[in-house]
Design a protein around this nucleic acid. Structure first.
Lengths: 252, 252
DNA sequence: CGCAATCTTGAGGAGAGTCAAGATGCGTGG
DNA sequence: CCACGCATCTTGACTCTCCTCAAGATTGCG
């Protein structure tokens, strides 16, 4: 896994950003769009399993995930790993790393990813020149915290089945919102069971058994990188989750 | 527990805010100080165990905790509760509630608290008129997320002893930083064991037994609302925690 | 002085972890 | 085209951490 991030020249213009056409994202003014374009210093393509931000490293850049999946994680000295949350297209990466000069978590790609890179100084320009966009940065940070909050509720107080149901439900909804719906009614989900286990605070073995319970109950179909939830009502009841708000969100 | 928040006129001027004298907080310019003062619409005093923000409610205000302790939490429909993080003087409350128009977590006081209240619109004024302060708001939000990240690492991957050690270490450090040091070398800690259990994803019974292990090992002394950590080296090793950065932080 | 919340202790059980082995799938190269 | 190797998934057996239920001891406070 390369610790440094190769770059190549920008190839996608924000004005024709494929994400912006999705209803999940708020519209922006022409001026804001031009500003965002001016922030973008590079486009970065990485394969699956690449280190995007190393744990403990200082990040010199901030990214928006254009396509693909990634996750934030922490590891303890003896190797135990906790996945903090998953990152999907449109999500902001490295805000903490940027603000604190050092991260105590890493970010790794799950699939091939394309990232829009913003330089360190540019972040400050947002706050200075574009208060509405600065507000959006804060909003995206708060949304990420809300995801981690839910993960903590899961790890702390939900049973294994509830945790898995809640996570699959969340990922299904998020993937759908960014246009990852598949023909058969499912969504692409490039996670191994080991990833799910590390996200939920379970062992891989126990996660596997829990998954089979949901499968045999006809609530989850997962295989070949595709997730289908045939019984949304049942899985929502299991997760004891409230339907997440589907309001359009900012995209920077 | 009152769901609404009584107010009384402002009595403490930001210029003479007792928190600002602490080295834990960044200095501000006279102009910023005046701006912050202009944001403050009220000062709120609440007793222990009061609801500051109800779970599921929309928050019309943002607060800075001036004195006392509070915590953010989520509950499942059947009553299981997870404490997300603890709030100490200088911390910002209700940012998520403000940004999302509705919270799925509640905030409750642990001790008598005094809050500085900012109105909903004023938050926007910060972004429009004071980019440096807006940046600080984002910073405080990211810091809160870092705390939740650590809580998730604990709940997901640390053993009961490690979790407790990590939390007590964190709270000890934070309390010290805001001047809650006591004569005997400890810090005030107004938490019941039930609170610690709910923060760590443990049952109250198991937390009690875990606490006794740390006590008998001479690593923790907790009683009468005072926490002492006689063997910092041992508890840090147990928690497998890195020493948190002690850089001055923003105060709004 | 007495109630209520909190803390403590015991006993038994269940959920989840560990260890270990085998099955399945897949990309690569001979 | 098949064989090999590696990663992932699956299953079984056993263990142990942590939970639940239940009863008592302490403490603080009106």
């Amino acid at each position: 896994m390369p610790a440094s991030v190769p770059t190549r020249p920008t190839t996608i213009f924000c004005a024709s950003c494929p994400l912006r056409t999705l209803p999940a994202f708020q519209p922006v003014t022409a001026e804001q769009l031009a500003f965002i374009q001016s922030l973008k210093v590079a486009e970065v393509t990485l394969p699956a399993r690449a280190t995007i931000v190393a744990q403990g490293a200082s990040a010199d850049r901030l990214f928006t995930l254009l396509s693909g999946w990634a996750f934030r994680f922490k590891t303890l000295p003896d190797g135990r790993r906790q996945i903090l949350n998953f990152l999907l297209p449109g999500d902001l990466l490295g805000l903490q790393a940027k603000l604190f000069d050092q991260t105590d978590h890493g970010i790794e790609s799950l699939s091939d990813v394309v990232l829009c890179a913003f330089s360190r100084e540019n972040i400050w320009h947002i706050f200075r020149d574009q208060p509405a966009l600065a507000f959006d940065v804060t909003w995206l940070g708060a949304r990420e915290e809300a995801l981690v909050d839910d993960g903590l509720l899961s790890a702390g107080r939900r049973t294994a089945v509830e945790r898995l149901a809640a996570l699959l439900l969340q990922l299904h909804g998020r993937a759908e919102a960014v246009g990852l719906r598949r023909a058969g009614g499912g969504v692409a989900l490039p996670l191994s069971q080991a990833h799910l286990a590390d996200a939920l605070g379970l062992s891989a073995v126990h996660l596997n058994r829990t998954m089979q319970r949901l499968r045999r109950a006809g609530i989850v179909e997962l295989g070949g990188g595709v997730l289908r939830l045939p019984d949304m009502k049942a899985i929502r009841a299991l997760a004891r989750a409230v339907a997440p708000s589907m309001e359009p969100r900012p995209l920077i």
